[in-house]
Simulated scan of single mutants.
Amino acid sequence: MQDQTSALYTERKIMRYEKGSWNEMNDRITLERPLHLEINGKEFITLLCTPVQRKELAAGFLLSEGIIQSPEQILSMDLKEQEDLISMELTGMEIDLEDRVKKITLTSGCGRGTILCDVMDAISEPRISGSMDLSPVEIMERMHELHHHSSTYLKTGGTHSAAVTDGRSLLAFAEDLGRHNAVDKVLGFCFLNRIPTGDKAVLASGRISSEIIMKVGRSGVPILVTRAAATDQVIRIAEAMNITLIGFARGTRMNVYTCPERITGTG
């Protein structure tokens, strides 16, 4: 799993009101920066994110939007930290980028998330054929590990986290102010490092909405687990894409909404 060493927060003085009195104190604040994505010399899109793992975010976003399908399509990727800019040279794209941007959908994700398609397009996406078996104990252990690794959330309360797991350990982990960004970062890490995801699960700390299930499905991931809720449309998309969707995975309980055959003991 990648090492995330850069600070995700800053400190500033605030006034806190508590139990009838005011006190000046230092508080930890989650960082937020723009990430301008330039493709083949043209400005493409700007993402708002926590400024770490930005190459992974860019790759994961392009993958989950169906713009690229293979690491070999990335001829170069240059991150200019001071300009909050990633310049990429891509090849073999089968879509018109300008046309795709016209289909922007503002999502319910944190930080006003964006997807470049109609959410109902997911219904016609290929069904996930990847196989993976997880036990309830493995799920609970990995979700506990996800929470334990979420150090910025524990310090600030201002981030979401996501991970990719093979059931035994976390292979990728990320925190970000946006839950959709956190998912893009871990999928991008696996994509850039050529870690197959057809036999892996994605773990997430936040509510699952349509853009996240689409990202997971387009990466071929067969299982998605969250400690929070899922919407009715997400459940319909998960059924259509043959994804095992699990919500409220907290402590010793969880809800399996779709495709329970991948979870041992449900049959």
Rank of each mutant, 00 (worst) to 15 (best):
L37C: 03
L37D: 06
L37P: 01
I39A: 12
I39G: 02
I39Y: 00
N40P: 06
N40K: 10
N40D: 14
G41N: 03
E43Q: 08
F44A: 00
F44G: 00
I45P: 01
L47F: 03
L47W: 04
L48V: 12
C49A: 10
P51V: 03
P51T: 04
P51N: 02
V52N: 05
Q53W: 06
R54N: 09
K55E: 14
E56F: 05
E56M: 01
L57Y: 01
L57E: 02
A59D: 03
F61M: 02
L62D: 03
L63R: 04
S64Y: 07
S64M: 14
E65Q: 07
G66R: 07
G66Q: 05
Q69M: 15
S70H: 13
P71K: 10
P71I: 13
Q73R: 09
Q73C: 12
I74S: 14
L75Y: 15
S76K: 07
S76C: 06
S76N: 13
M77F: 13
L79Q: 09
K80I: 14
Q82K: 11
Q82H: 06
Q82V: 09
E83T: 09
E83N: 08
E83G: 03
D84H: 03
L85E: 03
I86E: 01
S87M: 04
M88H: 05
E89Q: 12
L90I: 12
T91V: 15
T91W: 15
T91R: 15
T91A: 11
M93F: 06
M93T: 12
M93H: 07
E94W: 10
E94V: 10
L97F: 00
L97W: 01
D99C: 04
R100Q: 02
V101Q: 11
K102C: 08
K102W: 06
K103N: 04
I104H: 11
T105Y: 04
T105N: 06
T105V: 12
L106H: 04
L106Q: 09
T107E: 08
T107R: 02
T107V: 05
S108H: 07
S108K: 08
G109H: 07
G109T: 01
G109M: 06
G111K: 10
R112Y: 07
R112P: 00
G113S: 09
T114S: 12
T114R: 15
I115W: 05
I115L: 12
I115E: 05
L116R: 00
L116H: 00
C117L: 10
D118T: 13
D118Q: 12
V119K: 09
M120R: 15
D121M: 12
I123A: 14
E125R: 14
E125N: 13
G130K: 13
G130Q: 14
M132T: 10
M132V: 11
L134T: 08
